[in-house]
Simulated scan of single mutants.
Amino acid sequence: MNVSTLFRVPRINVRDAATIAILMAMTYVLGRVGIHTPIVVFTFSFLATAVLASMYGPIVAGIVGGVYDVFVTILSGQMYLPGFTVSAVLSAFIFGLFLYKNEKFSPWKAILAQLVITLVVNTFLNTLWLSMSTLTAGYSFKVFLMTRLIKQLITTPIQMVLLVVVLGNPIMQKLIKSRWK
């Protein structure tokens, strides 16, 4: 696939807007299911983000990821930290880079996408945003990094397996590819 196809913003019709809204709602619901502690959060929201990125590409996925982050932060009443919006945009964008318009589903692309997101976004950037936030003042980057590395070592293989199972499902592949036509 060439670069112009990858970065072209697809036309969004009413059906697409409804699909994006449903996937955003799924992201919200899946974001509430999981393990939530002050430092470590593990949810299944990445699955809906990966499906959205597979269907609409990196540009739309990045925009939706950023809008979703701002929207949910405002609705939840939490303090807004722009760094986490950058992380949300980058995660969705990376999923789109690896998963958009891959005619034959490759589990390795899904695994590689999750690995890049884990290393760059989850381990480095999110740790940086946490250490810079006023909520966690007094804790150093190294302290957070060690905690988050342990979390990533445990959760990343689970995320990779779930991505391959969900995105590799023939019904899901049919749904994703129907958007590309």
Rank of each mutant, 00 (worst) to 15 (best):
M26T: 03
L153G: 15
L115R: 05
S131P: 06
R148V: 03
I176E: 10
F98E: 03
L153A: 15
S4K: 15
L112S: 14
R32H: 10
P10Y: 00
G83T: 10
F44N: 07
Q159K: 06
A88P: 01
G168H: 00
N102Y: 03
M146A: 15
P107A: 13
I150T: 07
K109F: 11
L135M: 14
L6K: 04
S91W: 04
A21R: 13
V51L: 07
I74T: 05
T85R: 04
D16H: 09
S140N: 07
L112D: 04
K109L: 15
V89Y: 05
F84Q: 07
A17N: 01
Q173W: 02
A53L: 00
Q114W: 12
T37R: 06
A137V: 08
S91C: 09
V89D: 01
Y100G: 00
E103R: 15
V164Y: 11
Y100V: 00
G65Y: 06
T27C: 10
M55Q: 07
F124A: 14
V165G: 06
G138Q: 00
T155N: 12
F98G: 07
G57C: 00
F44Y: 08
G96F: 11
V165L: 12
Q159G: 06
I59V: 15
A92E: 09
A137H: 08
I59G: 05
G62L: 12
F46L: 07
T19W: 02
T136W: 15
T136M: 14
I63N: 03
P170A: 05
I59D: 02
I22P: 04
L97W: 01
S87H: 04
V121S: 11
I35W: 07
M172S: 12
N126H: 10
Y28T: 15
V161W: 05
T19F: 09
F105D: 05
H36Y: 08
F93M: 10
L112F: 14
L52W: 08
G31V: 08
N13R: 11
I150Q: 09
I117L: 06
S54E: 01
I158P: 12
A53V: 03
V86W: 10
T19C: 03
L162N: 07
A61S: 07
N126P: 10
R148S: 01
N2A: 06
T37V: 12
F144P: 04
R15K: 14
L128T: 12
